[in-house]
């Protein structure tokens, strides 16, 4: 992902003949460049940089929602503190660790499923057939539907008494009694995964499809002439060639999955069996009004995601061999 940074930029000066004028033009251009960057940098500092630093700071205070400026500095007490021989704080809270586990579980399973199904859909869309554009448009629909709306649609389909999913499964004889998809602690995580997978297969499929369409056609023709089985061709030729695109799709999806909020908030709200890090942090911040403690959870979430990115980029680079 860092390769683009090293790409060449058009040189600044038109020719050697106008070098003298060129340096003036170049200086003018560099000054203009910073001027044009300034509004964007200011905006990002205001909505991202400063708030992030404040969140770090607030996690070291006892701030509450009604008063964040008058908060007292309490060090790392929101994270971990020993009082009367008992450990308190975020890192000693089993609910927090449960939500970390839920987030990881959700992310790994849903991203894996999305990649597998995304590849299947992409392979299909890569084949020539009549009405391909129509199928592609249909596949894009789940991506365009707001997460809240898709969660509501599925909540209705998964409704324990009147839902069509239970109706279908009972009609097929797969279950005897209706299942409480969103209320049952053992099922609710799978309900959430089901909705997330449905919504994000299109994204993965499109990225894989873009990679498939750039593959050279001749090695496939050679494989066909040699009578090599298509499944073998897929694992030996196609998969290695689309691996870079897959790695990009996986990191985008993983980053999204690790901060998942909307779909869970609507489907199962604060139920402990699906509580993720984002749900936990927001509950502390807004519902319990404990900005200090909630900021500590936000900071931990940030660190965990940053760690995931670093590990992933490191492994991805190793996987890809020498990166440009």
């Amino acid at each position: 992902m860092t390769t683009t940074l090293n790409e060449s930029v058009p040189t600044d000066t038109p020719s050697a003949r106008t070098r003298k004028r060129g340096t003036k033009v170049r200086r003018q251009r560099v000054r203009a460049a910073w001027t044009y960057l300034a509004p964007m940098l200011v905006a990002l500092a205001l909505v991202a940089g400063w708030p992030l630093l404040r969140t770090f700071y607030l996690s070291l205070t006892d701030a509450s929602l009604s008063d964040t400026t008058g908060a007292a500095f309490i060090g790392f007490e929101n994270y971990l503190v020993k009082d009367d021989g008992v450990w308190y704080g975020l890192l000693a809270d089993p609910v927090w660790w449960n939500s970390v586990w839920n987030t990881v579980y959700f992310s790994v399973i849903s991203v894996s499923l999305e990649v597998v199904f995304g590849i299947i859909v992409a392979l299909l869309l890569n084949a020539e057939f009549k009405g391909r554009m129509l199928v592609r448009a249909a596949v894009l629909i789940p991506w365009a539907i707001p997460t809240i709306v898709s969660a509501k649609m599925w909540a209705w389909m998964l409704n324990d008494q009147f839902g069509i999913i239970n109706h279908m499964l009972m009609g097929l004889g797969l279950i005897d009694a209706p299942l409480a998809w969103t209320a049952d602690a053992d099922l609710s995580m799978w309900a959430v995964i089901m909705v997330d997978v449905w919504k994000t297969i299109p994204f993965v499929a499109l990225l894989v499809l873009a990679a498939l369409q750039m593959l050279p056609k001749d090695c496939y023709e050679a494989a066909e002439v040699d009578g090599i089985h298509p499944v073998k061709v897929f694992f030996r030729v196609t998969l290695p060639l689309i691996t870079p695109a897959l790695l990009v799709a996986v990191i985008f999806r993983l980053l999204d999955a690790l901060r998942v909020f909307d779909v869970i908030y609507v489907l199962t709200s604060n139920s402990s069996s699906t509580m993720t890090m984002s749900i936990y942090a927001r509950q502390q911040l807004v519902e319990f009004q404990d900005v200090g403690y909630g900021s500590a959870a936000s900071t931990m979430l940030f660190l965990i995601i940053a760690l995931a990115v670093v590990v992933y980029l490191y492994l991805g680079r190793r996987q890809l061999g020498v990166d440009k």
């Binding site: 205001l46 909505v47 991202a48 400063w50 708030p51 992030l52 630093l53 404040r54 969140t55 607030l58 701030a63 929602l65 964040t68 980053l255 690790l258 901060r259 909020f261 890090m277 984002s278 942090a281 927001r282 911040l285 900005v291 909630g294 900021s295 936000s298 900071t299 979430l301 940030f302 995601i305 990115v309």
Partner: peptide, 15 residues
């Protein structure tokens, strides 16, 4: 672009 939105929630609320 990789930021989790929750990570800035309290700081952004203040702003």
């Amino acid at each position: 672009s990789m930021f989790p939105q929750v990570a800035v929630l309290s700081g952004l609320f203040e702003v």
